[in-house]
């Protein structure tokens, strides 16, 4: 319960950054924070107390294992997040090359 709530606090910190920051770099960082908290929440949700990781080993038989399905989903989600970060970084670098600033209010003003 406390862990769920702390994870949600992490998400809200990222959300706060996306809403209030005017800086493109800080917005990218806040999006990354939101992604981390979501991934972590899914895995926390799948944890079973005293269970083993879902990989079979030679010579041992384990009955209780952690839920592998959210792990598979999060594995793909991490990769997509990095792709999106790369895309956003490319866009930010391009915008900086054109307007010489990272401030989105100024970029909006320059667009007219």
């Amino acid at each position: 319960m406390t862990i769920y709530l702390m994870c949600f606090i992490l998400f809200l910190v990222g959300f706060y950054g996306v809403i209030t920051k005017r800086d493109l770099v800080k917005i990218i960082l806040s999006l990354a924070i939101m992604g981390y908290s979501t991934n972590l929440f899914l895995i926390i949700f799948a944890y079973r107390t005293g269970a083993h990781y879902p990989i079979l080993e030679k010579g041992t038989s384990v009955t209780a294992m952690v839920d592998p399905l959210p792990q598979a989903l999060v594995l793909t989600s991490i990769v997509i997040e990095l792709g999106i970060t790369a895309l956003l970084v490319a866009l930010a670098v391009r915008l900086y090359g054109k307007y010489k600033t990272f401030d989105i209010t100024k970029i909006r003003r320059l667009l007219g």
């Binding site: 991934n39 269970a51 991490i78 990095l82 970060t85 790369a86």
Partner: peptide, 21 residues
């Protein structure tokens, strides 16, 4: 949380993201 797969992938991708940034 018993997810060594994800720990490896997250660690490596984090380093890559920091390098890109």
């Amino acid at each position: 949380l018993q997810a060594p797969d994800l720990a490896i992938v997250q660690f490596l991708f984090e380093i890559f993201a920091i390098i890109i940034l």
